[in-house]
Design a protein around this nucleic acid. Structure first.
Length: 588
RNA sequence: GCUGAUGUGGCGCAGUUGGUAGCGCAAUUGAUUCGUAAUCAAUAGGUCGAGGGUUCGAGUCCCUCCAUCAGCUCCA
């Protein structure tokens, strides 16, 4: 693909990712040109390419765009492409650049120039009468943009700051060929079919009600998944020498002042008044865990103490942020707090990283790791923050774990390692996190007695694997498109009755499976077998359909239809029982 | 919280310029006893998100709230 740079030279771009990025960036310009033609008052802010496509943030004054307007903009873009305008760069010294943008009423660009390096000259790209301040490079003619689509509009703050004015963001995407664009649109449709909110409704996993926005109700099927995950969690934690506790949901304000949450997290905490005193509903489990530690003296011999808690927390999230199980106001953290000595930091963090890695591999998730450093509004000394941050970096380096740094995104009490899982739409969600904390032990005066009989202050790790069990179930639902592996499936086997003549045998098969603790259901309705299979396959997504008719009853066997292969296999009931129970036990 | 959109029986949807709510699936009942992705028929089910207003008359028009969706911001 031929591209032009801001010094006017041209070149050929071979790298496919880079090509796509340039193409999309040029698409953003062409869209802006189309918007300017239709809405001369438009002022442009930022208009970059991203991994999904491109967007442009535009100030349209009081104009509100409708879907029809977006269609018109897309049509105008096609016209610009057809005109095949040459795209030409030019460079201006700073003062002339400001002047040009002022003349054209581009106040956001003027503000942008003020943010740029003062010594650098400023480059512009022009196509027809449209001029955009831009670093480039771009395609050389508008006709090189062959496949694009406007995908929607939304609001976006100028410079992504909620204190600033909200602009109109028009989103689009572009590809090198129409075929790639079509495939992309098809992929989005497929992803929408996997939406956990839709599947959760179909499979009766969970529900929401207007009376409790953001607070999920778990239905029997969803509860089966939740409990199965918890069983798994308890098993691996017990193996790794964790103990488990449970602490109160509601504790008084004084505690939250001590922990620092009152100062740093007040706006997100629900509270209530009991006997004229303010009590808070816990948004985090750590103070509870700390109180358990503090309840008696500890020897260095007890450390590290790994204390787990499946804690239900409530946080008042902004209503616009709520999103199915991905973002709720009440969720269960698979939390644990590790109390340890300074020299145990690296080993303990490494142990947690191993555990989280094991859990994610179990489900076949892709993930990446981020290190978040000290935020602006935080507590503690610089030395402690530096020591804590170096502790995390040391452990990551020791494990050769690649990571990126997220500056200033740590918790208010310490830096953290975040694990981000990718969902079916390519969005990433923070799940696991490991936070190193020197503050909470200080605030609560935690101690242990060392080998010399002297009192020392322990260091604390806060960590979760699933993060939020609710969010994790949402991600699992989309990951598997509702076709959960046998061990997780809410209904693991469904007995389907061909005709009432074999009802007695079907009941026996059902009871045998049920007695072996298989999550089994019996469909003995007067329906044709095809009808029952269709429902078990497409709605319930049951891994094994156990078909029982006269043949099976007479021969004392079962016919097993596999959800994933659609193949039917005949076998003895004992054989099926040992197969399915082994799969459940081995968690496959 | 911000920008834009949406809100009709359990679910998915239709309802033309305001005239008193319909369809498919599911449910219930009856018939059928039928072997691998939908058997036929009948029945029942809705104060059209909530509250105000305009009108002789509002699911349709106006206002205010609530919830949801796409994003922004924020976060597990």
């Amino acid at each position: 693909m031929k591209v032009i740079y801001n010094d006017g030279t041209t070149g050929v771009c071979e790298d496919s990712a880079e090509k796509l990025h340039i193409l999309r960036h040029s698409a953003a310009h062409i869209m802006a040109q189309a918007v300017k033609r239709l809405y001369p008052c438009a002022k442009f802010a930022y208009g970059p390419a991203n991994e999904k496509g491109f967007y442009y943030d535009i100030d349209l004054g009081d104009i509100k765009l409708t879907d029809a307007d977006l269609v018109a903009i897309e049509k105008e873009m096609k016209a610009i492409v057809k005109e095949n305008l040459p795209i030409k760069p030019f460079i201006l010294p700073r003062n002339e650049a400001v002047k040009l943008m002022q003349e054209r009423g581009e106040t956001y660009k003027v503000e942008h120039i003020a943010d740029l390096d003062e010594t650098e000259p400023i480059s512009f790209y022009q196509q027809g009468d449209y001029i955009d301040m831009c670093r480039g490079p771009h395609i050389t003619y508008t006709k090189a943009l062959k496949a694009f689509k406007i995908t929607g509009q939304s609001g976006a703050y100028w410079k992504n700051d909620s204190n600033n004015k909200m602009l109109t963001r028009i989103n689009g995407t572009a590809f090198e060929t129409q075929e790639e664009l079509d495939n992309h649109m098809k992929m989005l449709e497929e992803a929408a079919k996997r939406d956990h909110r839709r599947i959760g409704k179909e499979m009766n996993l969970f529900m929401f009600a207007e009376e409790a926005p953001g607070f999920p109700f778990f239905l029997p099927n969803g509860m089966a998944i939740k409990n199965t995950l918890i069983d798994y969690w308890r098993e691996i934690h017990k193996r790794d020498n964790y103990v488990e506790i449970s602490t109160p949901l509601i504790m008084n304000r004084h505690l939250w002042e001590t922990s620092g949450h009152w100062d740093h997290y007040k706006d997100n905490m629900y509270s209530t008044t009991i006997d004229d005193e303010t009590y808070c509903i816990k948004p985090m489990n750590c103070p509870g865990g700390v109180m358990v530690y503090r309840s008696k003296p500890h020897s260095y011999r007890e450390l590290p103490m790994r204390v787990g808690e499946l804690g239900v927390v409530h946080r008042h999230e902004l209503k616009g942020a709520l999103h199915g199980l991905f973002r709720v106001r009440c969720f269960t953290q698979d939390d644990a707090h590790i109390f340890m000595r300074r020299e145990q930091i690296t080993d303990e963090i490494a142990g947690v990283v191993h555990l989280i890695n094991e859990v994610y591999n179990k489900f076949g998730f892709k993930y990446y790791v981020e290190l978040s450093t000290r935020p602006e509004n935080s507590m503690g000394s610089d030395e402690d923050w530096e020591a804590a941050t170096n502790g995390l970096i040391g452990a990551l380096n020791k494990l050769n774990m690649p990571y990126t740094i997220n500056e200033g995104d740590g918790a208010f009490y310490g830096p953290k390692i975040d694990f981000h899982l990718e969902d079916s739409l390519g969005r990433t969600w923070q799940c696991g996190t490991i936070q190193l904390d020197f503050q909470m032990p200080l605030n609560f005066g935690l101690e242990y007695v060392d080998e010399k009989g002297e009192k020392q202050r322990p260091i604390m790790i806060h960590r979760v694997c699933f993060g939020s069990i609710e969010r994790f179930i949402g991600i699992l639902t989309e990951h598997f498109a509702g076709k959960f592996p046998v061990w997780l499936a809410p209904v693991q086997a469904k007995v389907l009755l061909v005709s009432e003549k074999s009802a007695e045998y079907a009941k026996k098969v059902y009871n045998t499976l049920r007695d072996a603790k298989v999550r089994v259901e019996l469909d003995n309705r007067n329906e044709k077998i095809g009808y029952m299979i269709r429902e078990a396959q497409t709605v319930d997504r049951v891994p094994y359909m156990v078909i029982i008719g006269q043949k099976e009853a007479e021969e004392g066997i079962v016919s097993i239809r596999n959800r994933d292969t659609a193949q039917t296999t005949e076998m003895s009931l004992e054989e099926f029982l040992s197969k399915i129970t082994a799969e459940i036990k081995d968690r496959v």
